[in-house]
Amino acid sequence: MGSTEIPGNGHELASVAQQRAERLAELPFEVSVSAGPKSVGGFFASIREIAKHRELLDLLIRRELKSRYKDSTLGFLWSLIKPLVQLLIYYVFIGTVLGASRGVPDFAIFVFSGLTLWGLYAETISTGTASIISNGGLIKKVYLPREIFPLASTGSAIFNFLVQMVVLLLAIIVLGQFPVSWNLLYVPVAFVVVLIWGVTFAVVLSALNVFLRDIQYLVEVAMLLLFWASPIVYSWTLVVQSVKTHTWLLDVYLLNPISLAMLAFQRGLWQAGSQTRVLGDPGNLTVVPPVQWPANMDLLLVLATIAGLVALFFAQRIFSRLQGNFAQEI
């Protein structure tokens, strides 16, 4: 083989064969099941299996990023142009024309931080859901831990998120709004919560999509709706005001881990939200008090993380059950 086993005379080859036989005789048998172990420990076995393939995961992420804008002149710039245009639309139309920015100081930073985090979630789920189908050729031919396909989509979504993050941070610094406070710690926490829930849905939906192709279209529609279920283009203050005395509605609203993560992300990066600001033209000034963040936000974030990990466990178990039939359903 290659450099090591140059075909020589018959005797040498026989000993190569013999060495191979001896080595193989030592190896334990592995049950080749494509569905992975069924027990609870199967979750950790699958994680180990994925960890073994991390080099491949890395290559798949690169493949996804490279092939996306391969033949376009602007290339990666496109992954920035879309969110920037979104920002422009929300800033001009929702913010200025419809007046959503009236109670929201530094509306641009507010919206762009929301869009950045939402982009991570939406891209993870929508590309993740389609990932098993789009890699069907491979899945039918070789055994790999199939979880790496939704994970590779997640990887490329994280990359795009980081690019947007750089733009966001630059903008914040240029505007002189960099928040030097402990609130910054909310940023990684929000990222982790969104990532866990994004991966959970990506894993379970990618498996279901194999059996019911409508899932991927359903996901697109659901993401459109869910966009408005989190405080991305409107502020938490607006939510608090509109529920009036029915405060239990706020609890329901915060059951969505993404809404919670969104608030944490904004609390970390959107300095103006935690300060008293004065807005408007001279003569028509309004004083905007700091946002009343949910009282037990830290606890809720911890709970959302734990619940996410539990959900991820079940998502992987469902995936594991379903993947045995992937090759024949694709």
Partner: peptide, 14 residues
């Protein structure tokens, strides 16, 4: 090759 899971029985390999 482990690509399809059998309904019954198993395959072992090394």
């Amino acid at each position: 090759g482990g690509i399809i899971e059998p309904n019954d029985g198993f395959v072992e390999r090394r």
